[in-house]
Amino acid sequence: MIAIIAGMALITFVLRAAPLLLADIIGRFPARIRLLLDHLPIAVMSALIIPGITQVDPDSTLVGIVSGITAVILVVTNKMPLLLVILGAVASAVITKLCMLS
């Protein structure tokens, strides 16, 4: 089992590190491909959030949805630090869970 885990680790490491080692070649990619990659952060984060956030709690989709909406509201209405946004969102999720259990 340790050998399998080591193999998984090696695959993941190669996927992550290889592009960094080839950075100089990547710098010479055509402008169109670099523009395409500029959209990657938003695209990958959006794909991770939906539908993941609705499945965090297998018993209830509401916990994740409340947390997500709280995060959006906190970000849009206040320029607060990331950490406070996260704490606020988690607090709202815990309160939602408490209300559902009681």
Partner: peptide, 15 residues
Amino acid sequence: PALNTSLYALLIALV
């Protein structure tokens, strides 16, 4: 699960 919404809140706060 409620605590684990933190990772998603982080992503939302970045997007």
